[in-house]
């Protein structure tokens, strides 16, 4: 299989070649997230989750009377946890 991996033909697949070499760079790490991430990845994931939570809140929870600020608070808390421990 390893012999084959070096023959990856398409652009994205070929990026995987590159990754093998760059993974020595110490910035990436494994936290509780299933993938190895750097701080930028974790920030990205946090923002994505935060936005998803807010949209979900608007649609289903705010009509019940709970303020959107609760969603924001949860989002920020989640972001802090993710960035520090993810």
């Amino acid at each position: 299989m390893t012999g084959m991996e070096t023959r990856t033909p398409t652009p994205l697949a070929a990026a995987s070649l590159e990754e093998a070499e760059t993974s020595v760079v110490p910035e990436g790490r494994s936290g509780f997230l299933p993938i190895e991430t750097n701080w930028f990845d974790r920030l990205f994931i946090s923002v994505v989750l935060w936005v998803a939570l807010c949209l979900f809140w608007f649609r289903f929870i705010e009509p019940l009377g709970l303020s959107i600020w609760i969603a924001n608070a949860i989002g920020v808390a989640l972001a802090v946890i993710l960035i520090r421990k993810g």
Binding site: E18, T22, V25, E27, N38, F40
Partner: peptide, 14 residues
């Protein structure tokens, strides 16, 4: 640059 240099965060840039 992406191929030959070990810049930090280059995959994110990609």
């Amino acid at each position: 640059a992406l191929s030959r240099f070990n810049m930090s965060g280059k995959e994110s840039i990609f």
